[in-house]
Every structure is written in C-alpha cells, then in structure tokens.
Simulated scan of single mutants.
Amino acid sequence: MKEYILENDKICIKFLDYGGIITAIIKKSNNINYVLSYEDFTNYERNPYYFGATIGRTAGRTFPPNYKNSKGDVINLDINEGLLNLHGGNEGLHKQYWDVSLINKDTYELTYNDTDSHYEEMLLKIRYRIEDNSFILEYFGFSDEPTVCNLTNHTYFNLNKDKRDGIEEHWLQMTPTKLQIINDTSVPTEEYSDMSSKYYSSFDFTEKRKIGDAFRISNELSKICADGIDLAYIFDTDLPEIVLQSFDKENVLRITTDRECAVIYTLNKINERLKIKDGGIITKYNGITFETQERPNHLQTKSHPLISHYHARTKYTIE
C-alpha cells in the first residue's frame, strides 16, 4: 500500500491507495492530527475498526442481508456481524486497492471498477480535494443497470494531541435531527424519535454538550450501543452541520454534507489491542466517527433503493 499527500499552508491530508483510507488530517498551525491512525500500517490490511476507510457498496447494517435486483431476483449478501451484513461485507471497498491519479495540486482522484462483489458492476470514483482550510470528499458511481450504492467514510476523529485522551470531554453540536430507533440486535427500524423524551434526551446534541454525557446511561438503548453511541441521526434540514470541538475549544472540526443522515459511533467495542499513533494502545471511546450516508437499512425500507448514478459530498473544515 502507498500513502499519498495533499497539502497547502493550512492543512495536510494523507491517504492510502488501499481502501482509500485516510491516515491524517493535520492542522498545520499546531501540528495536530485530527484523526486516529494505526502505528503499524499492516494493521490496515485487516482493519477491524475500519480506521479511515471507504465503506461500501452499502454502509451500515442491512437485515435481512439481501436485496432485490432490478429484475426482482433476491441477491444474498455475506453475513459478517451476527445475522446481518455490515459495511458491504467482509470484502467491501475498505479491502480494495484503488487506482490513484493526481488531477491538480489540490485534488486526487481514486478509481475502482467493482466487478467482483455481490452487486451489479459499478465504476466508482473518490475525489479528495483541499480548499483553504477545508477537505472535501466526493463519491461518484456509474452503472449500466440499477444497483446498490451507499458509500461513506469511517474516519475516527480525536482532536487531542495525546490520543490517549479519549473524546468524552469533546464538545459536540449538530443541526436538528431525529434518531433512528434500533432493535435489540442493532438493526435499524423505521421508527424515529425527536429525542424530547427523557429516555432519548442524553443522545440529543442540538445544543452543545460533552459527548461523554451520552455514555454509560442506565437504559436499554445504551446497553445495545455498548454504553456509547452507535446510532443514525437523520437531518431535519438540507444544509446540516456537525461541529466537534476539543475540550479547550482550541481545535474545531465542522462537517457539512448533502447526505440525509450521519451514523455516529464512539468506538465502543474494543476487541483487539492495537497501537495507534500518538496514543499507545487503542481504548474504548478513543475516537468518534460521523458516517454521512443514506439512512441505514435503506435497502429494506426504501421503496426504490437501486440507482445507476451516484454522487455524495461531505466537507470537513479544520479550525
């Protein structure tokens, strides 16, 4: 695997051709890397935590693990978490090598022709671009027949210099959202909450609050989420914004997207003790990811989930 660099006088972005994995988003004024990365790059070959990876062909959890193609045939997907399909399966886009081309000094394009997966053939492109203090990520998909495409990026953010300090004390705020309810096996349902009730209120970040306020809550939803956050937030506006701040508010990340939701996951399940840069051994709550995408399980809940052309855009502004 090869690492590539995009930089200007304000930010530096590093990524791999393997999985399109983002290994660094650096704020140059104080040399803080906003993301978690493995110390040993060979860990990206297995990548049990999906660090920095491109996720697809369909992000999130799908149950039942299948879909109907344009002819009405049921296409079975591989099962890689309990009884469901997670993040496109065992050999998803996070496990593929992408062809990388330099478009100009501010833009790289990654290309992968997905011909060997469960899904219909699709030509996929990722565009990584920097503009002032912003990193812009765009996905494109082109297929001759309707197929599955719901991509996201799984970068974990931690705005501390010392990554041994987790994200419990980070501040989080986002535009108004609804919470997608999950069942006891974490499968997303078609029920939603505005989080006005006490049961859900700890997961509401409409007003700025510490992320750790949502941890270790004594209710069933918290237990399903392994005492953290592992939930889809559905945006109530076409121009949503997510703002993450370090405890001292010195480092700020602003995320805007054209996607309808963001799945927020706070690294609640640690199964392998791997070393990360600037932080020793990975621990619970070491980082937080914002997986901007179509709402989870849309293959089973959306009336027309198949598409021939795909485009998605998310912007990360580093302050």
Results as ranks from 00 to 15, higher is better:
Thr314Phe: 03
Glu169Arg: 15
Glu291Val: 07
Asp230Pro: 07
Thr314Ala: 09
Met122Ala: 15
Ala24Phe: 10
Thr314Lys: 01
Pro65Tyr: 03
Tyr316Ser: 01
Pro188Tyr: 01
Ser218Lys: 11
Leu124Ser: 08
Cys149Ser: 10
Asp17Phe: 00
Ser308Pro: 08
Tyr192Lys: 11
Asp194Met: 12
Thr147Arg: 05
Gly279Pro: 04
Asn104Arg: 13
Arg295Phe: 13
Asn31Ile: 00
Phe290Lys: 01
His154Tyr: 00
Glu138Asn: 08
Gly166Ser: 10
Ser196Val: 11
Ile5Asp: 00
Lys14Met: 03
Tyr38Leu: 08
Gly141Trp: 03
Asn31Lys: 07
Ser143Val: 10
Tyr265Lys: 08
Glu169His: 09
Phe235Cys: 06
Leu84Arg: 11
Asp106Ile: 08
His304Leu: 13
Asp258Leu: 13
Lys161Tyr: 15
Thr107Ile: 14
Ala232Gln: 01
Thr237Asp: 07
Ile25Val: 00
Ser186Ala: 15
Pro296Arg: 03
Glu191Ala: 15
Asn286Asp: 15
Leu306His: 09
Asn158Gln: 09
Asp106Gln: 09
Leu123Phe: 11
Lys302Thr: 13
Ile264Phe: 06
Pro146Ile: 04
Asp165Cys: 12
Tyr97Val: 09
Lys315Tyr: 03
Phe235Tyr: 06
Glu109Phe: 09
Leu93Cys: 10
Ser196Gly: 12
Gly82Asn: 11
Cys149Met: 07
Asn8Pro: 04
Ser101Arg: 15
Thr185His: 14
Glu169Asn: 13
Leu86Glu: 07
Tyr112Arg: 08
Met174Cys: 01
Arg61Thr: 11
Pro296Leu: 01
Asn160Tyr: 09
Glu109Pro: 03
Pro48Lys: 12
Ile234Ala: 10
Arg295Asp: 13
Gly228Cys: 00
Met195Trp: 09
Glu190Asn: 15
Thr115His: 10
Thr289Ser: 10
Ser186Thr: 14
Glu260Asn: 09
Cys12Ala: 09
Asn150Ser: 15
Glu250Thr: 09
Leu244Thr: 02
Leu110Asn: 02
Pro146Asn: 13
Asp99Phe: 11
Ile103Arg: 02
Leu274Asp: 02
Ala214Phe: 08
Gly212Glu: 02
Ile22Arg: 05
Gly166Ala: 08
Lys198Tyr: 15
Arg57Thr: 06
Tyr34Lys: 00
Glu169Phe: 03
Asp116Met: 14
Ile264Glu: 03
Ala59Gln: 01
Phe157Tyr: 13
Trp171Tyr: 14
Pro64Met: 02
Phe205Met: 02
Tyr233Thr: 08
Glu168His: 11
